[in-house]
């Protein structure tokens, strides 16, 4: 019995959500008395691999095969399953990131494992049956799933738990997987990634704006507010539908579901479909000139006022806070 956690990297750097997955795996390891092995696939330097020891990992398996320097869903899933088998892992943890969503079902199918996708709690362990909660109906409900199969794959929702340090000495092992040519038919042609921006699903703070902004030219102040706070920017569906902002910023039932520590909604009325995507945020701030906007009913803090008046003042106030 062992726990395997797969930790994703972007251009060689491990992701925040990956460290969260490691901490989650470590918590299961502590509860069940099992060691945690981390798996890294791709080109990652030794320093970063050793750094995983800070999060309680006792062993790191590093796959640095050249064919796998770029993400190939099918091949990565095969490697993760192969490593899981080689260490006889009965629990496999990974982040429910965009790539994780592609990997998790393939890994689970290979291992005949039960799969908890989008886990938001640690498992309640009742012998072989583990209970894990996940968000359902786009945030309108929480489902408790019981995993009964002997092997369990858990895809953890980003921002669910904090990565905690737990110093251990880590052993690094290079691993040569058996990659079948048929698993490598997908070819990455191009990657367009803004490395200076905080990815929305991982952001601790999200600044989101809606139709109240009146036009795409008015997003400067939203971006400035996000900059000051180290936040990601998001928007409502009408805004992305109108082409004011890219689709990947659309948060809501048919867009992205996010669960940051702080969600600031500016000029968004709060339609049920939008609320579905943000309801698991820890703190919600709403700025809207309509005191009757439904968003105020789910907010923790609110300002009734015109965005064009309030946001510049907020930027100054946050700047002053950051500077002192």
């Amino acid at each position: 019995m062992a726990i395997l956690v797969y930790i994703e990297n972007i251009a060689g750097a491990f992701k925040k959500s990956g460290y969260e997955a490691v901490s989650y795996a470590k918590a299961i390891g502590d509860a069940t008395g099992q060691p945690v092995t981390a798996l890294s696939i791709g080109k990652v330097d030794t320093g970063s691999l050793e750094g995983l020891g800070r999060y309680g990992v006792s062993k790191v398996i590093a796959v640095n095969t050249e064919q796998l320097h770029q993400f190939v869903n099918q091949a990565y899933a095969a490697v993760i399953a192969e490593v899981a088998n080689s260490i006889q892992a009965t629990t496999i943890v990974l982040s429910n990131s965009f790539s994780g969503k592609g990997l998790a079902p393939r890994i689970a199918a290979k291992l005949d494992a039960a799969l908890a996708d989008g886990a938001i709690t640690l498992p309640v362990i009742k012998g072989d049956a583990w209970e894990i909660k996940k968000s359902a109906f786009s945030g309108k409900a929480i489902a408790t799933q019981e995993l009964t199969a002997p092997i369990k794959v858990i895809a953890l929702t980003p921002n669910t738990i904090e990565a905690v340090e737990a110093q251990t000495t880590v052993e690094i092992e290079a691993f040569q997987p058996q990659v079948a040519a048929t698993d490598l038919s997908t070819v990455v042609k191009d990657i367009m990634q803004a490395t200076d921006k905080i990815p929305l699903p991982e952001a601790n703070i999200v600044v989101s704006a809606g139709r109240g902004l009146k036009g795409p030219e008015n997003w400067k102040m939203i971006e400035e507010l996000a900059d000051v706070l180290g936040a990601a920017t998001a928007c409502s569906k009408p805004v992305s539908d109108a082409g004011w902002r890219p689709h990947e910023e659309h948060v809501g039932q048919t867009g992205l579901a996010v669960s940051p520590n702080l969600y600031i909604a500016i000029g968004i009325s709060g339609a049920i479909q939008h609320l579905a995507g943000i309801s698991s945020s820890k703190t919600i701030v709403v700025i809207n000139n309509d005191p009757e906007a439904p968003f105020f009913k789910v907010a923790d803090y609110g300002i009734v006022g015109d965005a064009f008046d309030v946001v510049p003042k907020l930027i100054d106030a946050f700047k002053a806070y950051k500077n002192h």
Binding site: L115, I142, A149, V310
Partner: peptide, 22 residues
């Protein structure tokens, strides 16, 4: 079956909004 959903909960209602003067 490898797993099943045992029950559902509705998310806890959120607290009353605290308004701050603009």
């Amino acid at each position: 079956a490898l797993s099943h959903i045992t029950h559902f909960d509705t998310p806890p209602p959120r607290g009353n909004v605290k308004l701050v003067d603009k």
